[in-house]
Amino acid sequence: MEVDKGKGEAEETRKVAEADRDTVTLKSSDGKLFEVSKEAAARLSTVLAGMIAGGSIDDNGTDLKQIGSEALENVVDYCNKHANSIPSAALISSSISFNTAPFKEPEEWERKFVDRLSHDALFDLVEAANFLGMERLLDVTCHKISEMMKGKSPDQIREVFNIKNDYTKEELEEIRQELAWAFYDD
C-alpha cells in the first residue's frame, strides 16, 4: 500500500511540474546554484514566499548576495529535510504531547542537523535564516547557541564565543552589586 501511495504522489507532483516549475533556483554570493522545493521554500521562509508570490524569482538563479554557498547549501538541505520529515496527519494527531507551546523544542533530526555544523557554519546559518525570514530555522539555530552557553560560567562563555571582556574591574563590580539578586557571591 505504501508503494501505491508513493506512486500517486509522484504523479501529482509531475502534473504540477508540467503546469509550473515546482522548484526555485537560488544563487549564493559566490555564484553557486541550488534548487529547492518551491512549496518548502515558501512555507519556511517569509522572504522567499514574498519573492515567489511577487514573481521576483529568476529561473536562472535568484541572487542571494548576502549568503555564501556553504550556508545556502545548509538552508536548502534544511528545507528538503523539513519537507521530508512532515509526519502524516494520523501521526500528528496521535502524537500530540504536552509540548504545544508556541516554541517547540527542536526535533531529533533538527538537533543533529545543527550539531554537525562547525562554529562558523552555525553562525553563517543563523545569519542566513535571519536574512531569509526562516522563523523555525532561526529558533533551532538560536536554541543551539543557547545550549552552547547553558550551565557555563561567564569566563567559559567568553572562551567558547571569543567574546572580549571590555569592562573594567570596577565596572564589573558595580554591575554585580547592582544586580546582586542574580549573582550572590558564589
Binding site: 543563523v126 545550549e147 552557553m149 547553558k150 561567564p154 567568553r158 542574580a182
Partner: peptide
C-alpha cells in the same frame, strides 16, 4: 557579538532566567 540584537535576544531567551541575567557581565 556580530549578530543583531533581535537574533541575540532570541538565542539568550532560551536560557534559564538566572543565567540569562548573568550574561550582562560578558561584555
Amino acid at each position: 557579538n556580530a549578530l543583531g540584537n533581535d537574533v541575540l535576544l532570541r538565542a539568550i531567551s532560551f536560557l534559564e532566567a538566572r543565567q540569562l541575567v548573568q550574561t550582562c557581565v560578558l561584555s
